[in-house]
Amino acid sequence: MSFSWTREGRERGQASPLAALVALFAVCTGVSIYVVALGGTAALGDDRTYADPTLHRVSEELADGGVADPSALGTAQSAAPDGRRLNVTLTAGDRRWTAGPTPPNGTPTDAASRTTSVRFGPGSVVPGRLRVAVWR
Score class of each variant (00 low, 15 high):
R131H: 13
L24G: 15
D110C: 04
G39N: 11
A20M: 09
P101C: 00
T89F: 00
T89P: 01
P104N: 14
S117N: 07
P103H: 05
W5A: 03
T102S: 14
P101D: 06
D64C: 02
P108W: 03
A92W: 01
P53Y: 09
L90H: 02
G65F: 10
G74A: 12
A76F: 06
R84A: 13
T91F: 01
D64Y: 05
T91M: 08
R136K: 14
A42W: 07
T54D: 06
V36P: 00
G121A: 09
A76C: 06
G123N: 15
D69K: 05
D52E: 12
T98H: 11
N105H: 12
L73R: 06
A63H: 03
T91K: 07
A68N: 10
L55A: 04
T89G: 05
P108I: 05
Q77G: 05
A51L: 07
T91A: 13
R48W: 05
V88M: 03
S59C: 08
P70F: 04
A72R: 15
L55Q: 09
S113P: 01
S71H: 00
L44D: 14
S2L: 00
T41H: 09
L18P: 15
H56A: 13
A15Q: 13
D82A: 07
L38R: 15
S32K: 02
R57P: 04
G100K: 07
R114F: 07
G66Y: 01
V58P: 14
L55C: 10
S32F: 11
D46F: 09
E60V: 00
A92R: 01
G65V: 11
E61P: 11
V36M: 03
L73Q: 07
D69S: 04
N105G: 14
A15N: 14
V27P: 10
S4A: 00
G39C: 11
L18D: 14
T6L: 00
R48T: 11
G45F: 04
G45Y: 11
A112F: 08
M1T: 00
E11R: 04
T54C: 03
L21N: 10
Q14C: 01
